[in-house]
């Protein structure tokens, strides 16, 4: 009997400690949120925040899919360094390519990016993107901007944007979605396709063209 009483006392003591911890945590977290809002965004962070909002506005707009695709293409070409990305994605095959192949590839690659990302627009509903901090890579001048996409329907997604200041203008060179790099994913897939075509760039160009047509028919 005495033991039970002791145990009860212990439990109630634990609970009161627990309540104090909870109260403290709650305080800390609200303070953290408040600090978030007051902090000024760096130019890089503002660029990413604006771009994210433009994309979210586009996703929510009532335009039909073709209009959305064209609008997304404009955002992509304006804000991403598509040539550098295309070059990275082709890695060693870029050097072997003719000027005509490069132009053709870049055009189809852009189309593939547009198709890939706009096809997921429908799965977004009330998402918002919040920028929280950035880090400059002093060695090569890249700035990594951290952002988080949150919505009621899904788990939060972390997005890291890699930017360079190119001639006074920010350009996106890569995005990491939950630690998965957009550029590495494309490079890896294309390398596999190139391998299947005996390393011939025309084989990849053909596959990209077929994929573009197949997506149009869907």
């Amino acid at each position: 009997m005495k033991k039970i009483h002791q145990n009860q006392q212990k439990v109630s003591l634990m609970m009161s400690h627990f309540k104090i911890i909870l109260g403290f945590l709650f305080l800390v977290s609200t303070q953290m949120h408040a600090a978030d809002e007051v902090k000024q965004l760096t130019p890089e962070e503002k660029f990413v925040s604006d771009l994210g909002n433009k994309i979210i506005t586009l996703i929510r707009s009532t335009d039909d899919m073709n209009q959305k695709k064209e609008h997304f293409r404009t955002l992509l070409v304006q804000n991403f360094d598509m040539k550098s990305i295309g070059k990275f994605v082709l890695s060693r095959y870029w050097k072997q390519a003719t000027e005509q192949q490069k132009t053709e590839f870049l055009k189809l690659f852009e189309q593939n990016m547009v198709d890939t990302y706009t096809s997921q627009f429908d799965s977004y509903k009330d998402e918002t993107m919040k920028v929280h901090g950035s880090r400059k890579d002093e060695a090569d001048g890249a700035v990594w901007v951290n952002a988080k996409v949150q919505g009621s329907a899904r788990e939060p997604v972390n997005i890291r944007w890699k930017l360079y200041n190119k001639g006074g203008q920010f350009k996106v060179y890569d995005i990491h979605v939950n630690e998965v790099s957009m550029c590495i994913t494309h490079r890896s897939e294309y390398a596999s396709i190139l391998g299947a075509h005996g390393g011939k760039l025309d084989g990849l160009i053909m596959s990209l063209r077929e994929n573009k047509a197949a997506r149009k028919n869907n």
Partner: peptide, 11 residues
């Protein structure tokens, strides 16, 4: 819808 779903998933 990817060109090569296998290598996309692998990556």
């Amino acid at each position: 819808k990817a060109i090569d779903p296998y290598s996309r998933v692998r990556s």
